[in-house]
Computed example of a mutant assay.
Amino acid sequence: MHLKTVPFEQRNDYIDWLLLADDSKNAVLSYLEDGDLYAVHTQGMIVGVVLLILLSKSTVELKNIAVAADFRGKGIGKAVIEEVVQMNAEKGFTSMVVGTANSSIENLVFYQKAGFRMMSIKKDFFADYEPPVYENGIRAFDMVMFERKL
Rank of each mutant, 00 (worst) to 15 (best):
M1W: 02
T5K: 13
T5Y: 04
V6Y: 04
F8C: 02
E9H: 07
D13F: 08
Y14S: 00
W17T: 00
L18S: 00
S24I: 00
S24Y: 01
N26T: 07
S30L: 00
L32T: 01
L32V: 07
E33V: 05
E33L: 12
E33D: 15
Y38A: 02
Q43I: 08
M45L: 14
M45I: 15
V47A: 07
G48P: 00
V50Q: 02
V50Y: 09
V50P: 03
L52R: 09
K57W: 10
S58T: 13
S58A: 11
V60G: 11
V60D: 12
N64G: 11
F71Y: 15
K78R: 04
I81C: 09
N88A: 08
N88M: 02
E90L: 14
V97G: 04
T100M: 10
A101V: 10
N102P: 11
S104V: 10
S104T: 05
N107C: 05
L108A: 06
V109M: 08
F110C: 00
K113A: 05
A114T: 04
R117L: 11
R117P: 00
K123A: 09
D124V: 00
D128Q: 15
Y134F: 13
Y134A: 12
E135D: 01
I138G: 01
R139E: 14
R139T: 01
F141L: 15
F146N: 09
E147I: 14
R148I: 08
K149F: 13
L150A: 12
